[in-house]
Amino acid sequence: MGSGPQPGQVLDQALRMYAWHLRKVTKVRGAFRVQTEADTFALKPVRVKRQRLSFLQKVNTHLDDHNYTHVLPWLKAKNGERYYADETVAFYATPWFGAEWTPNASLSEKRIIQSLADLHRLTENAGFGTGGAEPQFKETVRRWNDQKEQVEHYAEKARKRTYPSPFDTAFLNHVDELVHAASFALNGLKRLSEYDARKPFRRVFCHRRIHRHNLLVLGDDWKWIDFDHGGWDVPMKDLALFFQRFPPKGETPPEILESWLKAYEATLPLSPREKQWFCIFIAYPDRVIKWLNRYYGHDGSVNELFYVQELEQEIRCFQQLKQFAKHVWPKKREKRQKVSTP
């Protein structure tokens, strides 16, 4: 939908659609906090077409019908619609709720991951029609291959420097481990993708952008938000993202990670092949590579100490997850589709 609508276009159309009497509007990340005389709402502009919004609204309604309490309902407008979309403007609105989750919140990670499992369980085999894009495994294989080559390029660049920076040194100390992990994950994903083509893994509705920014907390309640990229996918995708993005800074004991996985599987057990896929995803150094891209792709001076600290933190997290993947890798594997452990 191009570069997206201007804020004034969205607000003007929303005022007509919801009959709001405005008091104040504030931009908060990718949404507007709309305070009216009666209440406060979140207005979310999106760059998707009507068919996509229709699909997402059906998912939202399905979850509400099945008493899933961890998503926000889309508001119904004067005309009965729960979203708006034309050639230039698309949006939906929800009640305003809480604040972003932080590790200091009283809400435990185990309860959060249980709600993720419930989301997947309730949408397995649900019929929502078209609009929920299927996972692009070949695209992930291509992206991972490009990233592995980029890591090797960064290493070559760092080695050629007469005076390596502290970041270069920290990176080169671990480059062999990173390349090996990326190669393992890439080869494993290729094999499991081939298996999926013959005997597809189950699909559920996945958020696909699991992140603490997309989890709001209010007291003892919480809501997942920003499902704009959601669609049919393997449940391991969301699960792996949770493990990569929710661990607190510092070392996370393996028994904590194992308790998270058990909490998820209490609701939605994974098959051995699904668990292999999960292990491959968490053993891939995605977040480390993002920091490499930020540093080596940055023009001009950088805060060297900050970048080194962030890189070392992400490397520690990656190493923890890699060890955890080895620990939970299924012991029984079919001989015809054997994938080595990480």
Rank of each mutant, 00 (worst) to 15 (best):
residue 185 A to M: 06
residue 55 F to S: 01
residue 116 L to E: 00
residue 298 H to T: 11
residue 212 R to D: 11
residue 201 F to Q: 01
residue 157 K to C: 10
residue 145 N to Y: 05
residue 316 R to Y: 02
residue 293 N to I: 04
residue 297 G to A: 13
residue 6 Q to C: 13
residue 229 H to V: 11
residue 27 K to C: 06
residue 85 A to Q: 11
residue 257 L to R: 03
residue 286 D to A: 12
residue 77 A to S: 13
residue 155 A to K: 12
residue 142 R to N: 12
residue 175 V to E: 07
residue 96 W to S: 08
residue 113 I to D: 01
residue 30 G to K: 09
residue 132 G to Y: 04
residue 290 K to M: 04
residue 34 V to D: 06
residue 53 L to F: 09
residue 16 R to W: 10
residue 331 K to L: 14
residue 108 S to Q: 12
residue 339 V to Q: 10
residue 251 E to W: 08
residue 41 F to H: 12
residue 295 Y to M: 08
residue 200 P to E: 01
residue 216 L to M: 10
residue 151 V to S: 09
residue 149 E to Y: 00
residue 192 L to G: 08
residue 160 K to S: 15
residue 153 H to G: 14
residue 29 R to S: 08
residue 176 D to Q: 15
residue 96 W to Y: 13
residue 18 Y to S: 03
residue 147 Q to H: 15
residue 178 L to E: 07
residue 98 G to K: 07
residue 4 G to K: 13
residue 90 A to K: 01
residue 6 Q to P: 05
residue 142 R to S: 14
residue 28 V to S: 03
residue 279 C to V: 14
residue 262 K to Y: 08
residue 269 P to N: 13
residue 67 N to S: 07
residue 271 S to W: 05
residue 19 A to E: 12
residue 147 Q to Y: 15
residue 103 P to G: 09
residue 176 D to L: 12
residue 117 A to H: 03
residue 235 P to Y: 00
residue 114 Q to N: 07
residue 212 R to E: 14
residue 238 D to F: 00
residue 253 P to Q: 04
residue 45 P to Y: 05
residue 32 F to G: 00
residue 138 K to I: 05
residue 130 T to D: 14
residue 280 I to L: 15
residue 136 Q to W: 02
residue 57 Q to S: 04
residue 208 R to L: 06
residue 233 D to M: 03
residue 54 S to R: 12
residue 233 D to C: 01
residue 101 W to E: 01
residue 286 D to C: 06
residue 182 A to I: 04
residue 226 D to G: 06
residue 244 Q to M: 14
residue 154 Y to M: 07
residue 218 L to M: 10
residue 221 D to Y: 02
residue 144 W to T: 09
residue 73 P to Y: 02
residue 270 L to G: 03
residue 33 R to P: 02
